[in-house]
Amino acid sequence: MKERIVFMGTPVFACAILKCLKEADYDVVLVVSQPDKKVGRKQLIQETPVKALAQTYGIEVFQPERIKDAYEQILRYRPDLIVTCAYGQMIPEALLHAPRHGSVNVHASLLPKLRGGAPIHKAIINGDSQSGISIMRMVKQMDAGAVMKQVAVAITQDDTMGTLSEKLAAAGGKLLLECLPLILRDEAVFIEQDESQATFAYNISKEEEKIDFTKPLQNVYDQIRGLIPSPIGYAFLNGKKIKFHAVRKKEQAHAHQNGELVGMMEGALAIACEGGYLLVEELQMEGKAKLDAKSFYNGAGRNLIGSCIM
């Protein structure tokens, strides 16, 4: 008889892990995901990515508002193992310890570094040269469980939160499949984390989405690409919010004021920063559609040259 697995996850990143479990023919008897949310101006209900994928496999989906008040329904599925990945709620200890093989998590950092809900965003924002995946035991404390195995993933200067997520998701699925046979035979060795080395990557706040153009070019560049494709960094231009969807950087000495909109440069809209220029390829003004830099410049942008982005 196959071991019964309950999978818990919510965003696109977690989809890769569920897909690996199914393609490896593991018996996923239930998927637990966050409740669907209303999005956009029309407040249309949008399914979580993990729910949508689970339905294509014909797996039953459970979406409790508060899992601590509803976890007993999960126990009815008699899981032998719980696998979590970016679920989004603190899971009660009674549920974590119920399966005979316990509960394991696929976390997108090299623990104990970057515990929390935004390790991929923060790795880029912090300017780190690598991230990684950790397979760990689930415990009550956030991402503090013992670690079985890790794999490092390099972060390039071209990576955004989106591209790094794709690389980490692929690495996470592969690593989990390497670990599962040992976990299900109760032969896995888990090593406790060094608490003195722990750092945290809490969910991105509204304040962290605001780009500070008084900082050096590399810091500005890292912050913006760490917020692409979501939640997207912004600043203000003539009192209107401007969002940055695609950027490059050019290191070069100049005499412009930090945040000054300089004009077109190498096919992008150049904004002066300490140490060079932020080259914006795609942007979005408040109340407007997303535009490439040339289209923006040929429209309203040409008359804004010399203005400062705050």
Rank of each mutant, 00 (worst) to 15 (best):
K113Q: 15
G263C: 05
C85L: 01
G267W: 05
C179S: 15
K38C: 04
G306W: 13
L111P: 10
V28N: 09
V151F: 02
P181F: 01
L30V: 07
G9M: 02
E65F: 03
L227H: 09
A198P: 14
E266I: 09
Q157G: 04
G275V: 12
D194Y: 09
D186T: 09
F244D: 07
A188R: 01
F7T: 06
V29A: 07
I45F: 06
C179K: 04
K2D: 13
L111H: 05
Q55T: 02
L111Y: 08
Y297V: 03
K288Y: 01
A118E: 03
E260T: 08
N203W: 09
E65S: 06
G58S: 11
A54C: 08
Q284H: 02
L217M: 04
A300I: 14
G276T: 12
H254E: 05
E187T: 08
G267S: 10
S109K: 08
V31H: 04
K167Q: 13
T214A: 11
E286V: 14
G226Q: 10
V220K: 00
M148Y: 03
G116D: 09
T84Y: 02
K22T: 06
E281M: 11
A198W: 09
I191R: 09
N105M: 13
D36V: 06
I271P: 00
Y234I: 07
Q252I: 10
G162V: 03
Q63I: 01
L176V: 04
E281I: 05
L114S: 02
L176G: 07
V153E: 08
A154P: 14
S103N: 12
Q193C: 12
L176Q: 04
L53M: 13
E286I: 14
H245R: 11
E282S: 10
M142R: 06
H107V: 11
D143N: 12
G226F: 04
G162C: 02
M136R: 07
L110R: 04
Q43L: 15
T84F: 03
I191E: 08
I120Y: 00
L21Y: 08
E251M: 11
S205Y: 00
I74H: 03
D25S: 14
E195Y: 11
H97C: 13
T48F: 05
I155R: 04
L96S: 14
N258P: 15
D222H: 13
L279T: 12
G276W: 04
G259Y: 02
